[in-house]
Design a binder for these strands. Structure first.
Lengths: 230, 230
DNA sequence: GTCTATAGAGCGATAGAC
DNA sequence: GTCTATCGCTCTATAGAC
């Protein structure tokens, strides 16, 4: 360990506020959490939110940006690793590259599970912030994966790829944001908190769904060309 | 039409409050909407919320109960209709029976699309009300469909059925609660507001996912017996 | 940097006139 | 039934002491 220096950075007030906000926003959404709640969990005064982040929205933005770029970089990195293998990336590998980093849990800053839950909740609250901040950063990774999917499934038009990518996002967000409910509902049999178990269930399901033949065959565009429009 | 009597019931203050609340809660969630907002959209005074529903929570509960039972009855009715055909219900028909009523849109009280969106948002806000009110009424329909799925897919254990049902819910909720975003993202190519188009895309995708061979084969329970535990 | 104290706004709920 | 008026509370944000 980098001893006291690293520990101080991790335990600093700014970081404690970020971690508390990440947890609470992921649990109860943006409007359901007050800055007092966040400051209380961090063990500091609520006025410090304004000091460090300007206002409540700045705090949310900081939480978001803390994970957004790293997560998509991990996804792209994994995708490139899989594509470097002979024969390129399989559909299962493309799915793994997209999903695995979103579900990763770790004590430090490298786990994005809370962030995925936060993302799911914010996307339901349809705050303006989501439409503003998010669109900039997700576009790059999204189009890279859309291209990877159509490389694996050349018989699908871009329309089908888009629909199925939408379904993929729904499956990911719902799984990431209803962990405890799933445990209760299944009587403990299914545990979305177990990353490997979740991937083992999700990837075959989604891969089969993506591979299904197109609902209306033949009349659609040839896919690869239309991907520019995304 | 039942002339003025039916019209009066539909335009009554109570109904206007219910309709306004349904729309607004579906758009911005429970905590994001004030009773003043609801009363304003209904064109009446905010004190009438207390008069008709006791308090804000009572309003939400009324909105919920207005759709909960009818929706599940329509699902069960469709399922029974499909199961009455020779050979029983196909997997695609079971999916259709579950999904179609949730996505139906209609000017009157019979469309559940707004309700599905409301359900998706509330399930993200994880309010206590959801865990209280919802659990009572959804259990019946859910277990009927879990049984129907395992009848179509006898080689799957209850564990896999539960996981895939969870994925189905995620796909449905995300599609139902991000209609406009999907339209924008796809450049107008994909429109989840079109019920038939949505079903034509969702059902083949989900059916293929459900039919995928189990991720870990052989070692699981024989499925039908374990369904009691749900 | 961290705190106390508070301004200013919006909320849910209710009392009471009509 | 529907309204006005208002209480009591919580929220975000800020000013200013230390």
């Amino acid at each position: 360990m980098q001893d006291s220096e690293a520990r101080q950075a991790f335990d600093g007030t700014r970081q404690k506020l970020l971690s508390s906000a990440e947890r609470l926003f992921a649990e109860r959404g943006y409007t359901g959490v007050s800055v007092r709640d966040v400051a209380g969990m961090a063990g500091v005064n609520s006025a410090l939110v304004a000091y460090y982040f300007g206002n409540k929205r700045g705090l949310l933005s900081a939480v978001y940006l803390r994970h957004c770029l790293p997560l998509n970089q991990e996804r792209i990195h994994l995708l490139q690793k899989y594509e470097a293998t002979p024969g390129g990336a399989s559909l299962e590998q493309v799915l793994d590259a997209f999903l695995r980093p979103s579900l990763a849990v770790s004590p430090g800053n490298d786990g994005h599970a809370d962030y995925t839950r936060l993302r799911a909740i914010l996307s339901c609250e349809n705050s303006e912030l989501l439409n503003e901040v998010i669109a900039e950063h997700t576009g790059v990774a999204a189009s890279a994966f859309l291209a990877a999917f159509s490389r694996c499934l050349p018989y699908l038009s871009s329309k089908e790829i888009l629909w199925r990518f939408h379904f993929l996002i729904g499956t990911l967000y719902h799984t990431g944001s209803h962990v405890s409910r799933m445990v209760v509902l299944s009587g403990g049999v299914c545990n979305p908190g177990d990353v490997e178990e979740t991937l083992k269930q999700m990837i075959p399901f989604l891969a089969a769904g993506f591979r299904a033949s197109a609902p209306e065959s033949g009349t659609e565009a040839p896919l690869a060309q239309k991907l520019q429009a995304v």
